[in-house]
Design a binder for these strands. Structure first.
Lengths: 328, 328
DNA sequence: ATGATCTATGAAAACGATTTCATAATGGCC
DNA sequence: GGCCATTATGAAATCGTTTTCATAGATCAT
């Protein structure tokens, strides 16, 4: 069937060991090296990765488990991770959990069976607490969502700071009844909620917030009910772009004009946020940098396992657009 | 280090062969089966996939190479493929080429080294013609972009029909100077261009079209120059959502109001297309069905290699929104 | 009761690479 | 020229499974 290293060896008139050395690194004379190269070309040899991994006890693979592959934030991070990995001669296994703890457990098990070298992971709140209990034989770097302090390396956005910026901006524009809508499955949603509450209190304002499942439908339903109330907020900050879509739809369904009747601000500078009318005021996350940093943390830990646990906090950038126009 | 099947065998007081049979399928008494299960739990055994793959000569892995992971069309297809695969007990390796033929070649080689069971692939035009030349030892199913007839199974949209629908709709709304903007790297762009030309001629109209690199920036630049001309089109059909963003930006930068000054219609029903003002008239692709069908074709070919080559053509659904409002 | 057919189990081979170990050849140094 | 260090090469062991192959009991029909 498939051509093996023995076939190449025979074709080149050398031993399999020499072929292995010629292809990898090892002392081989130029003459034999060329013979081997010719034999590889002639036979169309492709090394069997399973055999290589088994013998060398090194999968050369890093795992990437994300919560929602449809979320452009995660696809952007994935691309950055993939780039870094392939540049370092490693492969990537990408899995998508849809925020489902059961699938997270399933994929974690799969990663163990693959004997991956390291893992980059955006876990749900449910899993992140159980993670230290599982004895994993590879280092883990959390992205987007941090876990209990000092357990795993992590790279996250400065959520408190981002929320402070958004609230500060809205207050400056004259809003006082500012609501908050957050996803209920991720620690990021929780962190942004904390940041929201702190920022509101710093301004002497009363927080009013709601938490929903991470889907635009859930957000639309909840927001529509909320906005129908007499004491509805005049502005809403939203913890991610999926929920933001729901908020916009809810406002429109009630005939509320943004920002005249309701100001809106959210997270993630997706291309559509500047295309809608009015454009959305958002915190832009440094997605490539997050992916690159996660890979750096992982590589450094692989190289120096004794390193202290590090948490890299990156700052977002506030992009002001029409959705947070001055209050009437 | 890691616990192997021998350790489990020792703990259960049986031979490694029995452990293997108890975990997979094979005749094992209930008593021993339970002992093995207990030993697995006690030792925390995770089978080494590299060893299993090597011995059983079956990677249990299907490859998925897409052109652009940021394109929601491909992420949606990916999810469907992933679901089908894991349901069948297979794993997925996902790679992203960014429409770069060099990376396509790189990843194809990687897939061979992984000894994947089958491949689902959305190739660029450059690669799709070379594909038959490469002797791959696994079946390939093309998605989104078909190759030369009769070589590989494929599942694609009915692009000619979709274009006929869009042009028919615009003509009905009173437009006659209808331009076309297409991506230049995929066969899909080319096919939609053919469909556009055919549909225009059927209506006795003169086609005027342009092809650009698959990025919103390129589309914006090209469209802005186009719309500045005296004989500019009064409507534009656009072959994908990335380009559509560029067209909208170009129109706005010139102060053209959609649809009053320029009607627009495109492909892919992304969530933002109903959020912008006016909403975008688009052809919606049955993304989940595309992914599921690709997996079905692949599985059936694996089961019955002699099957004739099949090309499944799925129909899109036209969603009419404000962007194609009646001509003045 | 006896041979024939199953069934559950273990011993050992096999998958295809890398790596250790041994060895022949080379070169340098006195 | 002889000895030691160095180098290039091959033989063989090894990684952790699955899968033959052999075998000892058990079951069955006669």
């Amino acid at each position: 069937m498939s051509v093996s290293i023995k076939d190449v060896a025979r074709a080149a008139g050398v031993s399999p060991a020499t072929v292995s050395r010629a292809l990898g690194r090892g002392p081989v004379s130029d003459e034999l090296r060329q013979q081997v190269a010719a034999a590889v070309r002639a036979t169309g040899y492709k090394p069997n990765l399973a055999a290589r991994r088994l013998r060398s006890q090194d999968s050369g693979t890093i795992g990437l488990i994300v919560a929602d592959i449809r979320n452009p934030f995660f696809t952007a991070v994935s691309r950055a991770v993939e780039d870094s990995a392939y540049r370092a001669g490693m492969r990537v296994i990408l899995c998508n959990t849809d925020e489902d703890p059961e699938r997270e457990a399933l994929y974690l098990g799969l990663m163990q069976e693959e004997r991956i070298t390291g893992l980059i992971f955006a876990p749900t709140r449910a899993t992140v607490d159980l993670l230290p209990k599982r004895s994993l034989d590879f280092p883990v770097v959390l992205i987007d969502r941090a876990g209990p302090a000092g357990v795993h390396d992590a790279v996250v956005l400065d959520n408190r700071d981002a929320m402070a910026t958004l609230i500060g901006h809205l207050v400056e524009r004259g809003y006082r009844e500012i609501g908050g809508l957050f996803g209920n499955s991720s620690s990021t949603g929780a962190e942004r909620r904390e940041g929201y509450i702190a920022a509101m209190q710093r301004h002497g304002l009363t927080p009013q917030f709601r938490a929903v499942a991470p889907s635009s439908e859930a957000a639309q339903k909840e927001t529509a009910a909320w906005l129908a109330q007499a004491d509805r907020p005049r502005a809403i900050v939203v913890s991610n772009s999926l929920l933001l879509i729901g908020v916009i739809k809810a406002a429109r369904s009630l005939g509320l004009i943004i920002p005249r009747d309701l100001a809106v601000a959210g997270f993630d500078n997706e291309s559509w946020t500047e295309l809608v009318e009015p454009g959305m005021t958002v915190i832009e996350q440094p997605v490539e940098e997050i992916g690159r940093t996660a890979m750096s943390l992982l590589f450094e830990r692989l190289q120096t396992p004794g390193l202290p646990v590090r948490k890299v906090v990156l700052s977002g950038r506030c992009i002001v657009r029409g959705s947070s126009g001055a209050a009437q």
